[in-house]
Write a protein that binds this DNA or RNA. Structure first.
Lengths: 214, 214
DNA sequence: GACTAATGTTACCGATCTGTACCATAGTTA
DNA sequence: TAACTATGGTACAGATCGGTAACATTAGTC
């Protein structure tokens, strides 16, 4: 029970790692900087010398999360060169792992929910991250030749976002358990629409009510 | 600026209403009982005489949210007697309003994200509420003759949950803007599967990987 | 060894938080 | 009128929070 985090790394790393752990466990407002410093096997002063404030620490943490997401995306693309459909399938698998895994949901989404302050520096970062995620999903679907790529992308986006939230409130046995099956069914429906034209569940039918759309 | 809430109702009602307003604006941990009492045009003592603790107030608030959800469901059912498909369509519309509306998401889901403590009394209430919601969606789909009713129900559940979360992090122009279109496409795919059998985007194909399922 | 930068330690400030004690007041009922 | 109940008002306890000052200590570098 001596050192919570190996002291081989520099304090800054250890602090962010401890913050990541505690933020996920208790929420941002649920943990104090004292506890973070202690868990990082250091003290509050060095914490404040590296991060000017708790908000700055939150932003630094989310930047790490952001970068982890970037490399995950690049790995996904590199794993299936010239096979966009395999990329989508792989993405579904990875998303399912995220949704069912630890059960503490998406750090970005959770932070956006917890920190409601309009001008909080973390909110801009979160929004840009999520927009980038959405655009990448659209590109994935477009590469796969999906006709309404933006619609399928948003469908998958909403499904995984819902799965990760539902996991936290209902549990693993809840709707998130069907994420993979549902996602594949949706993909199949959209892909079929591509191949078969109007024969498939024509997605553009019934436009009596225009969606809010940008 | 005198009385924030009309003093015609009893203090207990005003307190819950003020708590509802402030919890949605700043989160539960982001607002103190002093602020709630003041917004309710009363004082902290009467607040603590009605609710033994802040946690009790949170639970009482969620109970009101729960009841509002119950009546909304009953209204939905009563609005379309013997027309299950119209009920689903109406549900999509109502869900879209919720998702795009105020933008502060689902009180239950948000609270589950913010209050991570395992044994918190609110968590049980939230879980039961969400499970009931899921079961009602399944019943809705089953009444409509959908073959894989539980799958469509979970699909719709995940979509609306994702839309309400995404609304908070990305904004109205984000993926939640396509919620209605996506939901209707998914419904059509599942309904087609009912009518046409194996001709439609067969949802049961490719069972190489068993879903987590209960 | 000497100098410098990074880190550790302790104590503290002011603000805020949940929750309570105590008493005054108003409304209602017998 | 008398007694009781609900509410308002004030002050406060005890704890925790974010953040800082001042000083001691270590590590690295020339």
């Amino acid at each position: 029970m001596e050192t919570v985090i190996a002291a081989t790394r520099k304090p800054r790393e250890r602090i962010i790692e401890a913050a990541c752990d505690l933020f996920r466990k208790h929420g941002i407002r649920g943990v104090g900087v004292d506890a973070i410093a202690e868990a990082a096997d250091t003290n509050k002063m060095t914490l404040y010398r590296h991060f000017g404030s708790k908000d700055d620490l939150v932003v630094a943490w989310l930047r790490e999360v952001e970068q982890a997401g970037e490399t995950a995306w690049n790995d996904l693309l590199a794993a299936h060169p010239n096979d966009p459909m395999a990329r989508i399938q792989d993405w579904v698998g990875k998303a399912a792992e995220c949704a069912v895994g630890d059960g503490r949901g998406c750090d970005m989404a959770n932070t956006a929910i917890e920190l409601t302050e309009e001008g909080h520096p973390a909110r801009r970062l979160i929004q840009e991250f999520k927009i980038r995620h959405r655009e990448r999903l659209v590109q994935l679907c477009r590469d796969a030749g999906i006709v309404e790529a933006d619609l399928l992308a948003d469908a998958l986006y909403l499904l995984v976002e819902g799965a990760r939230v539902s996991r936290q409130s209902v549990g693993v046995q809840g709707p998130c358990a069907h994420f993979t099956t549902v996602a594949q069914a949706v993909i199949r429906a959209f892909a079929q629409n591509k191949k078969m034209g109007a024969a498939a569940p024509s997605l553009k039918k019934a436009p009596e009510k225009q969606p809010v759309r940008a």
